[in-house]
Amino acid sequence: MAYIELELENPIKALSAANSLLQLPDCSKIYVFLGHIYAAEALCLLNRPGEAGAHLSAYLLGQEDFKLPFAQEDFDPWRMNMSSDCEETSDCSTGNARDSLKPEEARGALFANLAALFATQGHYDQARPFIQHALTLLPSNVQATITAVYIDLMVGRSQDAVARLKQCTRVSFVPGRLEVRAS
């Protein structure tokens, strides 16, 4: 429900659904992880980045490290349940997205989200190590790459930003001349 409400641009309802999920006893670690991610996104949309950071930092161990939000043994039964659901409904189109949610990729997503949160608050020095870790774990992730480009641009490293964009296979780069006018 939280995901659906976010897609429908209802952050208050998304936050409510995510918080309800996080309060369930014996909830799967994967769903707890998703609850934190969806709650953080809803809070960002509600312009409450401090609270969003609290959700993202639930897995923070130190300045630059996260514990895995779930282990492979948590992932395998969930994936098998999704496969059996897919067989029952004969609709396997949703299975592909769920198959990609592996523990290390979830960790990379956390790094990327925390980097984006720091960057939007103007804390580029704090964002940089997180985005570097995210890109190490998710080298072809477009959102992580765009976040890195944004950080590079904001700290005056435009050549690094252009190089990142050229390396990203899913982003089109059209060379041209950009004129910047002083205001």
Rank of each mutant, 00 (worst) to 15 (best):
Y124W: 12
D91A: 03
S90V: 03
N141R: 13
S158L: 02
L110G: 03
A115G: 07
T147S: 02
F111N: 09
L153Y: 01
G156I: 15
D99M: 14
F130K: 08
L137Q: 05
V155M: 13
F118Q: 11
K102Y: 10
P139E: 13
A112T: 05
F118G: 02
R128V: 11
S140L: 08
A127L: 08
Q126Y: 03
E105H: 13
F118K: 14
T145H: 08
T94C: 06
A106W: 12
A109M: 12
Q159W: 02
S100T: 14
A112V: 07
T145V: 15
S158K: 10
P129Q: 04
L101R: 11
D125T: 12
G122A: 08
F118V: 09
L138R: 13
N113D: 06
F111G: 01
Q143W: 14
L114V: 05
M154S: 07
A112L: 01
N141K: 11
D125I: 07
A148M: 13
M154L: 07
K102V: 13
N96M: 06
S93H: 03
I146C: 09
A106R: 09
G108I: 08
A106L: 14
R157A: 11
L135W: 01
P139C: 06
Q132L: 10
R107A: 14
N141C: 13
P103R: 04
H133C: 13
P139L: 12
L117D: 00
K102E: 15
S140C: 05
P129L: 07
G156Y: 10
E105Y: 11
Q132S: 11
A148C: 11
D125G: 09
P129T: 07
T94S: 10
V142W: 02
E105I: 12
L110H: 06
M154N: 13
R107H: 02
T120W: 00
R98T: 08
V149N: 01
L138Q: 05
L153W: 01
S93P: 01
Q121R: 11
S93A: 12
A134W: 00
D91H: 05
A134L: 07
T147K: 00
P139N: 09
A115F: 01
A106D: 06
F130I: 00
D125M: 07
N113K: 06
A134S: 10
A134M: 06
R157K: 11
